[in-house]
């Protein structure tokens, strides 16, 4: 069976004008415009089978939204091939549109001033959904998402959580085969998030919906997506099981040290004590944070060395989870080297 979403050697480059500052720069640019080429996405290969649920994570500027736009036909690739449901998105845009649906967390696709039900009806019309199918789908959506009390309300009067529920329903009116979710749970409270995740999960199970999710909320990913693709600086650095991330990249560990008052040169002394493994040492208000590679030294040894070299009051070993790894990736604290799949700081 061929994958439902596939990308081969996807490349996207942008030409940005290089303008100097101020009036002089603007005039110079007018006379002799200079451009630089920015590569947002380079050599991305993706293969997603029907019914899969994949998380697409990466720091801002890594090429995440560019990839999504390439997959949904909003952008045309500079090189490479994309196929969604056997259709090339940027070539047969309207045909592609029937097979997919996109939910943008920050923006609603509902019409602002009319009741939600009207928006749904309009979408049914736009997507040419046959009457019987529309009624059936609506019944299910209203039931599962509990949209009943919301249908008569104009979108602008809904709370964020209510609106997201409606947006999710609206996205499924035409029963797409692939659903793209771009930061869908941003700003939502825990209860609503749980509900939405449950809904997406059940849609997958019952209808074989293929889901591609980008999110900064690792709870979303953990619950919904067995598979995770990480992109950084335009390259895919990881494509595999979410749980695997800990095993692959979890060797970076931290010890949080609280020191007694009056400890001088703490960082230098710690650095000297652990010189052979070259840890990264950050000073905090109460002491130090020592980050080290657990493949080259055990946490026990690190603790022992620190206790000898410094007036340690308290020690804590920070748990490394897939969450923290991805979080640090988002915070820009980690760098991936795709070639050797190693992290550096």
């Amino acid at each position: 069976m061929s994958p439902i979403v596939s990308a081969e050697g996807l490349v996207k480059q942008f030409r940005r004008p290089k303008k100097g500052p101020g009036l002089a720069g603007a005039v110079r640019h007018l006379l002799r415009p200079r451009h630089e080429t920015v590569t947002a996405v380079e050599g991305v290969d993706l293969s997603i089978d029907e019914g899969e649920s994949v998380a697409y994570v990466g720091p801002n500027g890594a090429g995440k939204s560019t990839t999504i736009k390439l997959l949904t036909g909003i952008l045309v690739p500079s090189a490479g091939r994309v196929q969604v449901c056997g259709v090339r998105p940027h070539v047969d845009r309207q045909a592609n549109a029937r097979n997919i649906s996109v939910v943008f967390g920050q923006r609603t696709q509902l019409w602002w001033d009319i009741p939600v039900l009207e928006s749904f009806r309009l979408l049914g019309d736009i997507y040419s959904v046959p009457d019987a199918a529309y009624r059936r789908t609506m019944d299910e959506l209203v039931d599962v998402l509990d949209l009943g009390p919301l249908l008569g309300v104009p979108a602008r009067q809904l709370s964020l959580g209510q609106r997201m529920r409606c947006d999710l329903g609206a996205a499924l009116v035409h029963s797409p085969r692939v659903l793209f979710l771009d930061e869908p749970t941003i700003g939502l409270d825990v209860a609503v998030k749980a509900r939405l995740r449950e809904f997406v999960g059940s849609m997958r199970a019952q209808r074989g919906l293929t889901v591609l999710l980008t999110s900064h909320d690792l709870g979303d990913i953990e619950e919904l997506c067995p598979r995770m693709i990480m992109i950084d600086k335009g390259h895919i650095v990881y494509d595999g099981a979410f749980a695997e991330v800990t095993r692959r990249f979890g060797w970076e560990q931290k010890v949080v040290v609280t020191l007694a008052d009056g400890a001088t040169d703490a960082a230098a002394r710690a650095g000297a004590a652990l010189a052979r493994v070259q840890p990264v040492i950050d000073e905090t208000a109460t002491g130090l944070v020592v980050t080290f590679d657990s493949r080259s030294i055990s946490s026990g040894e690190v603790i022992k060395e620190l206790a000898v070299a410094l007036p340690v009051v308290d020690l804590a070993l920070e748990e490394t989870s897939a969450e923290s790894i991805v979080r640090r990736l988002y915070e820009g604290n980690l760098t991936f080297h795709p070639a050797d799949q190693e992290i550096t700081r």
Partner: peptide
Amino acid sequence: DGSFDRVLVRPIP
């Protein structure tokens, strides 16, 4: 503001 993207993912001109 990016709302134009929406226009490109709907099956009407």
